[in-house]
């Protein structure tokens, strides 16, 4: 019974994929529309893509977003990894429960509240809103995601690896950089990628914490859409989708290949 192509299966698959991807397909298709009106098809054209490269506002916003995402993802990864290490390793320090709760609270905190409270803080301490404040805000919320990802890896980490390194003469700091870090690196990299994507996507928190001269791409798109959707926006979004898709597909292919290679190696080892 399972795996056969019954009519019900086909219908539900088509409906499911349509539900998920029809809006995106529509957006991509209309980015190649000749007409200025988004909803009227007037023939194939790539002119909006060229137009895009002359739109300074959008390009600036894209540049700001890239910088914010790079810096915030990197800092968040360092902080998140440290938090994960502390939470998994020093399990008996005072206030651990409170600390772990506080690290993970922003995961479920409504973005509006995070954004608003950060805004209040920045105003209170007199920090001018702009690139720095958006970056700080993004570090704050993406750090928790990194901590979760790295922590789950650390929980399955074999501590005897570290003991073996110390037993062989490596002091604790050396052990961390020579053994622990390389072993948990894949988790740290995926934590970084998650933080990067979150920062790239974020509209709500950026709107609260950004200022003049530091408009991110999502903010820019949102403000332009309020004035009316132009095919230019479709073109930007298509490019974003392309970047994300290439990234995700490349990462999963690499992963898959490594997995297959690993299994082949293990089988070869068993035979020998």
């Amino acid at each position: 019974m399972t795996g056969s192509w019954t009519r019900f299966n086909i219908v539900s698959i088509v409906a499911g994929f349509a539900f998920l991807y029809l809006p995106i397909v529509l957006l991509v298709v209309y980015s190649f529309n000749e007409s200025k009106l988004v909803t009227v098809w007037a023939g194939f054209s790539t002119k909006w893509y060229f137009e895009l490269f002359n739109n300074r506002g959008l390009l600036d916003a894209a540049w700001v977003t890239a910088r914010v995402a790079l810096v915030s993802a990197t800092v968040a990864t360092v902080l998140g990894t440290l938090a994960a290490l502390t939470l998994t390793r020093y399990t008996r320090f005072h206030g651990r429960v409170l600390f772990s709760g506080m690290v993970f609270a922003p995961l479920v905190m409504p973005e509006v509240i995070t954004g608003l409270s950060l805004l209040l803080l920045f105003v209170a301490i007199g920090l001018d809103r702009g690139f720095v404040t958006v970056t700080l805000a993004h570090i704050t919320f993406s750090m928790c995601f990194v901590a979760v990802v790295v922590q789950s890896r650390l929980l399955s980490f074999d501590r005897s690896l570290e003991e073996a390194a110390m037993d062989l003469g490596a002091p604790p700091v050396k052990t961390f950089f020579a053994i622990t870090l390389p072993v948990i690196m894949p988790a740290i990299v995926s934590g970084w990628m998650l933080a990067f994507t979150l920062s790239l996507d974020d509209l709500v928190i950026a709107s609260f914490t950004s200022g003049p001269g530091a408009t991110t791409l999502p903010m820019k798109i949102y403000s332009q859409v309020r004035l009316g959707v132009t095919p230019e926006i479709n073109a930007v979004c298509t490019i974003l989708i392309a970047i994300v898709t290439v990234g995700v597909v490349a990462a999963s292919i690499l992963n898959k290949r490594r997995e297959v290679q690993r299994q082949r190696d293990a089988q070869a080892a068993m035979r020998s």
Partner: peptide
């Protein structure tokens, strides 16, 4: 500390890097 003792250990899990 363990890293200054003239003893070495072979671990049950082998603990290969």
């Amino acid at each position: 500390p363990p890293y200054r003792r003239p003893v070495n250990m072979m671990f049950q899990s082998y603990a290969l890097f």
